[in-house]
Computed example of a mutant assay.
Amino acid sequence: MKKLLLILCILFTSISFGQDGLVLSQQNANEKGISPIWPKCERSRQTPVQCFDGKLRTHIIQNFEYPEIALNEGLAGTVTVEFIINKKGKVEVLDVHGAHRYLQREAIRIIRAIPKMEPGKWGNKPIAVAYEVPITFVKPE
């Protein structure tokens, strides 16, 4: 009886936690073809992965603003932002490291401004996909 109870507890625990917290890395999602779809990428001639990468680069360039205080203090460097596109298609910043905190704040602002998109899907279930993006701040001359 105790063995049966133990087996049932383990079985129900694994079922209740199965795939709810699943997050794929960008590389794994790209390999499996389950990347999030950036707005208007569904009509693109590019693959969803190519379109996502291009739109992300464009988004960073268009939204980039060198912080005034960082300019005044001569700050430069590379900030790496780790984030996910969650199961609802929204951005969640997980970690930021590198360079000065003023530059980190700007990098976070840029990433948080990413538009809501169609989340990656595993079969028919939405899934979170993790990304890591370096943003380099070079002080203008």
Rank of each mutant, 00 (worst) to 15 (best):
A107D: 07
N63G: 04
L5K: 14
D53R: 00
V81G: 10
E68V: 12
E42L: 08
L24W: 07
Y131G: 00
E42M: 10
H97R: 15
V129M: 02
I15E: 13
T58W: 06
R57S: 13
W38R: 00
I135N: 02
E106I: 04
I37K: 01
Q62A: 11
I108Y: 00
I108D: 01
L6H: 13
I114V: 12
E82M: 06
I127L: 07
H100D: 15
A76H: 15
I37N: 03
I108T: 10
A107I: 04
P67F: 07
I110F: 00
E31P: 08
A29D: 09
C9F: 10
I61G: 01
N63A: 03
W122M: 15
E31R: 14
E42N: 15
K125Y: 13
C41K: 08
L6D: 14
W122E: 15
F17Q: 12
E118A: 08
V133M: 01
A76Q: 15
I110M: 05
L75N: 01
S35V: 12
E118M: 09
S44R: 04
T80S: 10
K2D: 14
E65R: 08
I108M: 04
M1Y: 02
E42F: 05
F83V: 02
V129P: 06
V93L: 09
I69D: 15
R101Y: 13
I111Q: 04
K55V: 11
E73D: 13
T13D: 04
A70V: 04
N86Y: 02
Q62D: 14
K87D: 02
K32E: 02
I114R: 05
T13M: 12
T136S: 10
R105F: 10
Q62H: 11
L71V: 01
K139T: 11
H59P: 12
R101V: 14
V96D: 09
A130T: 01
I85F: 05
K90H: 09
Q62S: 12
K121A: 12
I61S: 08
K90D: 10
P126R: 02
I108C: 03
Y102K: 01
A70M: 06
R105M: 12
I108W: 01
R101M: 11
I127R: 01
E106R: 05
K2L: 14
R43V: 09
G123E: 03
R57G: 06
R45D: 05
R43C: 02
P119M: 06
I114A: 00
L4P: 07
D20S: 08
C41M: 08
G123Q: 08
N72P: 01
Q62C: 04
G77P: 09
I15W: 15
L4F: 13
I37D: 07
E68C: 05
V91P: 04
G120A: 00
L94R: 12
V138L: 15
S35C: 05
I110Q: 01
K32L: 07
I60H: 02
E92H: 11
T13S: 12
L5T: 14
Q50S: 14
P115V: 11
Q19P: 04
T80P: 05
N86W: 04
V23A: 03
E65C: 03
P134E: 10
A70E: 07
N30F: 11
P126I: 02
W122I: 15
S35I: 11
E132V: 03
L5V: 15
G21N: 11
Q104F: 05
H100W: 11
D95V: 09
R57V: 11
A70K: 03
I15H: 13
